[in-house]
Amino acid sequence: MSALRRPIPRYAHGSRVPPGWDEAADLTKEPSPVPDPATTEVPATLREEIEGHMALYPDSRSATLPALEAAQRVHGWCSPEAIEQVACVMRLTPAYLVSVASFYDMLETSPVGKHSVYVCTNISCSLRGADELYGAVRTAAGDDPEFNVRAFECLGACDIAPMASVDGAYVGPLSIEDVPRLLDDVRAGREVLPEKQLARRPCADAEASA
């Protein structure tokens, strides 16, 4: 293939590929209104959690994000089933919820691995080798279905660049050598790279702790 005919990458990593563009509606399906509580089963704990969130706000719709996050925790991703359950409890249409879910990076609208590894590849981290790190994590994780390895936009931890958020815990600065141990720690259910946990890092400003 000639260089000029090389396809220009349309959606590089960091951008989610739009999955629905080529999909038609299934005309054999019925429309999808607010689910009927009589026919939609919602796990009791999930319902309780969502209702708890709804009670916190003057308008219960504000609980959309926490509710979707809760459903994602239960189902692994915002599956149609998960969305329908949230819709049923919140009395919203599933379409409304999927519209919201697909807007946010942390809500998954297709199935993913249980353990999320978000590698920050934004400017500060990439200046310190984040793209290579991301490549290394991807390679090391291979097609292990347990992992959801994603290149993520700035995670707000440029002081430990390059870094990653592993199941929500920030670790860094990471080198490529750290990658195998990082994944092993996750697999073993241990705290990931304890010495590189942001939670224990002192402030860089020397006078701050004086």
């Binding site: 994000l65 919201v100 807007f103 990076d105």
Partner: peptide, 27 residues
């Protein structure tokens, strides 16, 4: 006071995007 957690969208740092997001909408 409620601590409300977002779900990953830079635009929600824009004040009105944040408000929409806090109301449970797309940001």
């Amino acid at each position: 006071l409620v601590v409300h957690r977002g779900a990953g969208a830079y635009i929600c740092g824009e004040e009105t995007g944040l408000l929409d997001s806090l109301e449970g909408k797309r940001g």
